[in-house]
Measured scan of single mutants.
Amino acid sequence: MAAGGDHGSPDSYRSPLASRYASPEMCFVFSDRYKFRTWRQLWLWLAEAEQTLGLPITDEQIQEMKSNLENIDFKMAAEEEKRLRHDVMAHVHTFGHCCPKAAGIIHLGATSCYVGDNTDLIILRNALDLLLPKLARVISRLADFAKERASLPTLGFTHFQPAQLTTVGKRCCLWIQDLCMDLQNLKRVRDDLRFRGVKGTTGTQASFLQLFEGDDHKVEQLDKMVTEKAGFKRAFIITGQTYTRKVDIEVLSVLASLGASVHKICTDIRLLANLKEMEEPFEKQQIGSSAMPYKRNPMRSERCCSLARHLMTLVMDPLQTASVQWFERTLDDSANRRICLAEAFLTADTILNTLQNISEGLVVYPKVIERRIRQELPFMATENIIMAMVKAGGSRQDCHEKIRVLSQQAASVVKQEGGDNDLIERIQVDAYFSPIHSQLDHLLDPSSFTGRASQQVQRFLEEEVYPLLKPYESVMKVKAELCL
């Protein structure tokens, strides 16, 4: 049975990233139509530049190519590739079939990587351009969430054990800070992308030097003109047959890092959902379990974690691919890159769409948070109580021993009897502590235990987050809708 299948058929496997999760716009960027249309555009740009620099290419040939950029006979191309065992030459023939007058000058002087690699770089750039505003929107939604809850005390956790208090907004800023680093890295790697350009079979530009009869300047002009037509500021000066596969490492490393950030955020949300302090959106008709109707599973956060793990592992592909590119190139890269580049971007696209949807509907339960604080705060307040007693004339050592005994009794009630923490009640009825009984409410005010959390939130948002989001103001209103 021949390899390949009808990918629109229910009898043929289709990647869930495309069929179930990723956005239509990201799927289109990695589609065959987008790819092969870009090949034709690159052939047109090459012909236009070659004509401008004096090669015998007519206006009629150029116009014929322009008129057929979208006229792609995919069936013919597939048949040609089956016959020739070469995808680029299959599309040269297919393009030439609908451009008979231009057929002889299509791909003039070029090698397969002229269309293959340059198209990949265009796709990487455009895919990054799709991700950047999506990530900015996630940051914006979380920034709104953090600002609104900047002063809401909550129990902090280290080692997932109760620690000092923080605020809900401050905790959210930990998430935002990681995503801001990801946004900066995505922008950097996007701006650092260079075009492969017009380089020939081993990167020496020998074929173009021959076409222009040894004119170095025209060869350099050709490279520059096509690079500018493709919208790049610069091209690699040095290439082998391909652009260095280190570029793929750079791009997928940034995406993998984004995956790590999203995994951490969504894990926190899942843990908070278990504590009943916070939940992701839950639709009115949504079913959490087929057997347990009360369940409210954090399905979206779980999906993000599941896909983020996949995204983090994909960076190993370009690392290994770059390491086995012998001399000017081997074909070890080809099949692998067809999979890992598309999957990385479709996965990143999915987790950003999902995280935006989550961040637009996060639900906080202040009463649950308050109750958990009441359970733990008495123990945390013991040092403040000791200091207040010393100020009232008591002995630190005597007070410490009193607190120690009462704390152990209260802990026994919590752990052995399943009761509430009654340390404060014990202190309130103990005559030894009568000098500070009137101060206990103040000493137990949760806001006095959150330090500068709310001020940190305000400063972080104003100095770091809002300036970073400013270039994306025009796209901030787009909502994230999930079908599944």
Rank of each mutant, 00 (worst) to 15 (best):
Glu343Lys: 12
Val247Ser: 03
Thr38Arg: 11
Gly169Leu: 03
Asp441Lys: 06
Leu461Met: 01
Arg338Gln: 09
Arg188His: 12
Gly200Thr: 15
Met299Asp: 06
Ser447Asn: 05
Asn384Gln: 12
Ala2Cys: 06
Val219Thr: 12
Thr52Asp: 07
Met299Pro: 07
Pro293Gln: 11
Leu352Glu: 02
Ile176Lys: 09
Val390Ser: 01
Ala150His: 05
Val189Ser: 01
Glu220Gln: 09
Met292Leu: 10
Asp445Cys: 03
Gln286Glu: 07
Glu220Trp: 05
Thr330Met: 02
Ile427Ser: 15
Ser253Asn: 12
Asp398Glu: 14
Leu271Ile: 07
Glu148Val: 10
Asp223Met: 06
Glu80Lys: 01
Phe460Thr: 15
Leu222Met: 13
His310Ala: 13
Glu79Leu: 03
Ser290Arg: 06
Met76Asn: 11
Val219Arg: 13
Thr330Trp: 01
Leu55His: 13
Arg171Cys: 07
Gly96Thr: 01
Cys172Arg: 10
Met316Gln: 06
Ile385Glu: 08
Ser12Lys: 15
Ser434Met: 15
Lys233Gly: 02
Leu352Ser: 07
Arg329Tyr: 03
Ser207Cys: 01
Leu132Met: 04
Arg372Thr: 15
Asp192Ser: 06
Pro366Met: 03
Gln458Lys: 14
Tyr472Gly: 02
Met225Asn: 02
Pro435Met: 03
Ser323Glu: 09
Asp420Asn: 00
Cys180Tyr: 14
Ser323Leu: 00
Leu314Lys: 07
Glu228Ser: 11
Thr450Val: 08
Phe208Cys: 11
Val478Leu: 09
Ser323Gly: 06
Arg300Leu: 04
His400Cys: 02
Phe74Ser: 07
Arg40Lys: 14
Ala431Asp: 01
Asp441Arg: 06
Ile57Thr: 06
Thr154Pro: 13
Asp87Thr: 01
Asp216Pro: 09
Lys66Trp: 15
Asn336Met: 07
Gly96Arg: 11
Pro435Gln: 11
Arg83Ser: 05
Leu186Lys: 05
Asp6Ile: 03
Glu220Val: 10
Arg33Lys: 04
Leu319Trp: 10
Ala256Leu: 14
Ser15Ala: 15
Thr204Phe: 08
Ser151Lys: 09
Ser112Tyr: 02
Arg404Trp: 04
Gln320Ile: 00
Asp333Trp: 15
His217Ser: 05
Ile62His: 00
Leu155Cys: 06
Leu314Glu: 10
Ala143Asp: 13
Val405Tyr: 14
Gly54Pro: 08
Gln397Ile: 09
Thr202Asp: 08
Gly156Leu: 01
Glu64Gln: 08
Gln164Met: 08
Phe36Arg: 07
Leu346Gly: 09
Leu469Trp: 14
Val115Arg: 06
Ala49Leu: 05
Ala348Met: 11
Ala3Thr: 14
Gln210Cys: 07
Gln41Asp: 15
Ser257Glu: 11
Ile386Met: 00
Leu468Ala: 05
Arg37Thr: 11
Phe95Asn: 07
Arg194Gln: 14
Pro10Ile: 13
Lys470Ala: 11
Thr119Tyr: 00
Ile269Met: 04
Phe30Arg: 10
Cys340Phe: 11
Asn118Phe: 00
Leu121His: 02
Glu228Leu: 08
Arg40Gly: 12
Glu148Lys: 04
Arg14Met: 14
Ser9Gly: 08
Arg85Ile: 01
Pro162Gly: 01
Asp332Ile: 00
Trp39Val: 08
Ile238Phe: 06
Leu55Thr: 04
Thr158Ala: 10
Ile57Gln: 10
Ala3Cys: 13
Ser301Leu: 02
Thr94Asn: 01
Lys276Ile: 06
Glu64Asn: 11
Ser448Cys: 06
Leu44Lys: 06
Cys172Phe: 00
Ile358Leu: 14
Leu174Ala: 02
Pro467Cys: 06
Ala78Val: 05
Leu179Cys: 11
Phe95Gly: 01
Lys470Met: 10
Leu209Ile: 11
Asp216Gly: 11
Gly393Cys: 01
Arg337Tyr: 13
Lys391Leu: 00
His159Tyr: 01
Pro318Cys: 11
Leu440Pro: 13
Thr201Glu: 00
Ala411Ser: 01
Phe195Asp: 01
Ser31His: 06
Ile339Ser: 04
Cys266Asp: 01
Ala77Glu: 01
Leu46Asn: 12
Val168Glu: 07
Ala411Asn: 15
Phe195Leu: 04
Gln455Ala: 00
Leu341Phe: 07
Asp59Glu: 04
Trp39Leu: 14
Ser454Leu: 08
Ala348Tyr: 05
Gln325Pro: 03
Glu425Trp: 09
Glu80Trp: 11
Thr202His: 02
Glu250Ile: 10
Val219Glu: 10
Lys391Phe: 00
His310Arg: 11
Gly104Tyr: 03
Val315Asp: 04
Val115Cys: 08
Arg196Tyr: 00
Ala163Ser: 03
Met380Ala: 11
Ala90Gln: 08
Lys391Met: 15
Ala206Tyr: 13
Cys483Glu: 02
Leu69Lys: 08
Leu165Met: 00
Leu44Met: 11
Lys147Glu: 01
Ile373Met: 12
Thr347Arg: 13
Ala381Thr: 02
Ile72Met: 04
Pro298Thr: 06
Asp215Trp: 05
Asp333Gln: 00
Gly5Asp: 09
Asp441Val: 08
Val324Pro: 04
Leu362Ser: 07
Ala47Trp: 02
Leu275Cys: 06
Leu311Ala: 14
Phe232Pro: 12
Ser31Ala: 09
His442Leu: 10
Pro293Thr: 02
His442Ser: 05
Gln416Leu: 02
Ile269Ala: 05
Lys134Leu: 13
Phe95Cys: 03
Phe30Leu: 09
Leu53Met: 11
Ser359Tyr: 15
Leu314Pro: 09
Glu360Thr: 00
Leu406Trp: 03
Leu174His: 00
Arg196Trp: 00
Trp39Pro: 05
Trp326Glu: 11
Arg426Ser: 15
Pro56Ser: 03
Ala146Gln: 13
Arg426Gly: 12
Leu272Gln: 09
Gly200Asp: 12
Gln320Pro: 11
Ile62Arg: 04
Gln184Leu: 09
Pro471Leu: 08
Leu131Glu: 14
Thr158Asp: 02
Leu469Gly: 08
Gln221Pro: 00
Val465Glu: 00
Pro162Gln: 09
Tyr114Trp: 05
Ile105Val: 05
Gln456Leu: 07
Leu311Asp: 11
Pro153Asn: 04
Leu461Arg: 11
Lys187Leu: 05
Asn68Trp: 10
Gln241Val: 08
Ala78Cys: 00
Asp144Thr: 14
Val390Glu: 15
Tyr21Gly: 10
Arg83Met: 10
His442Glu: 11
His93Arg: 05
Leu53Pro: 01
Thr354Asn: 07
Cys266Leu: 04
Phe157Met: 01
Phe345Ser: 11
Val324Gly: 04
Cys99Arg: 01
Lys233Asp: 07
Asn357Ala: 14
Ser474Leu: 01
Ile122Asp: 04
Pro467Val: 15
Phe95His: 11
Arg270Ser: 01
Leu440Glu: 00
Trp39Gly: 05
Leu132Tyr: 08
Ser23Asn: 06
Met292Ile: 09
Phe145His: 14
Leu193Pro: 08
Leu108Asp: 09
His159Pro: 04
Asn353Asp: 13
Leu362His: 14
Glu213Lys: 06
Ile373Val: 12
